[in-house]
């Protein structure tokens, strides 16, 4: 697994490897894209236990940012900070500031529901609402937000399903129960549902960990397409996947952000020895 990661990465980054020297000051970076979201000094506590410790991280707009690290390192905890999902866990407490378009989403008068409409989320396991057909599964966000116009719904559902690369497979059976879809299709349906409400940011929590290789491939292709229209943050325990789909990578370890950089740099020339140990497969 580690060997595989190495070869994949070398192939991808060989050009960069030659050009870069370890430890060199990064003065000549390309101008970074604007930030869609920015976390400042974010810590998360579950009861007494601190799961995330003072993480500051900017998420570039219209790019794919991957969060990697071993199990329990806080990457999913951080992801759930970004759309205030921790509000639903009474034992969880979030400290720090998270900016979305320059506005703190943890400010006292901010409505978490409005935030979640702008920052969508896809989960590890595909989520299909069992009582709804395919169309309704995608339309549910809009419909329950009060959208009644059939034309608008039709349009949004088709757009979302196309974006999720599922349209061609389901367009003739939109009325069929969504539970009949394969696992990979169900996950793309979940993505379409999240996209239908036109979020600015899409959070993906290990979206392919329950999906077979073919389905995984399709979802990775889809992520590459998505970044033209939406900012993507993806948590993955799979380093090759991070290398394949992301522009930026954050490496988490024991609740801390060890390193954040452009994907090619982080994998080819990590600054922190812990990052290097992890990506070369010495632990995790």
């Amino acid at each position: 697994m580690a060997m595989l990661a190495k070869t994949t990465l070398d192939r991808r980054t060989s050009g960069v490897l030659v050009a870069e020297e370890p430890g060199r000051e990064r003065t000549e970076r390309r101008t970074p894209p604007p930030l869609a979201m920015e976390a400042r000094h974010v810590s998360v506590y579950y009861g007494q236990r601190r799961a995330l410790n003072d993480v500051s991280l900017g998420i570039p707009s219209r790019r794919v940012t991957a969060l990697i690290g071993p199990s329990g390192c806080g990457k999913t905890t951080f992801l759930r900070v970004l759309n205030r999902m921790h509000d639903l866990t009474s034992s969880a407490r979030v400290e720090g500031t998270v900016l979305l378009d320059g506005e703190d989403i943890y400010a006292p008068r901010v409505d978490p529901i409005a935030i979640r409409r702008r920052v969508g989320m896809v989960f590890q396991k595909p989520v299909v609402f069992p009582t709804m057909n395919i169309f309704d599964n995608v339309a549910v966000g809009l419909r329950l937000a009060g959208e009644r116009r059939r034309v608008v719904l039709n349009e949004a559902v088709e757009r979302a399903l196309r974006q999720a690369a599922l349209w061609d497979e389901v367009k003739d059976r939109l009325g069929a129960p969504a539970t009949g879809l394969s696992g990979g299709q169900q996950q793309r349906l979940s993505i379409a549902r999240a996209l239908a409400v036109s979020p600015e940011v899409l959070l993906m929590d290990e979206p392919t960990s329950a999906i077979d290789p073919v389905g995984t491939q399709r979802i990775e292709d889809l992520i590459a397409e998505l970044k033209h229209s939406v900012t993507v943050v993806i948590v993955t325990h799979n380093m090759q996947q991070a290398a394949r789909v992301s522009d930026y990578v954050g490496f988490f370890l024991m609740g801390e952000l060890v390193e954040f950089d452009e994907t090619e740099r982080l994998f080819s020339n990590p600054r922190d020895p812990r990052t290097e140990a992890y990506i070369t497969g010495r632990f995790g």
């Binding site: 999902m85 989320m121 396991k125 989520v127 937000a145």
Partner: peptide
């Protein structure tokens, strides 16, 4: 009812009661 179902609903920006 799996927790994911509730979270997926909440993640769509729907109010709890919805």
């Amino acid at each position: 009812v799996p927790r994911e179902l509730r979270e997926a609903g909440m993640a769509l920006g729907l109010p709890r009661w919805r």
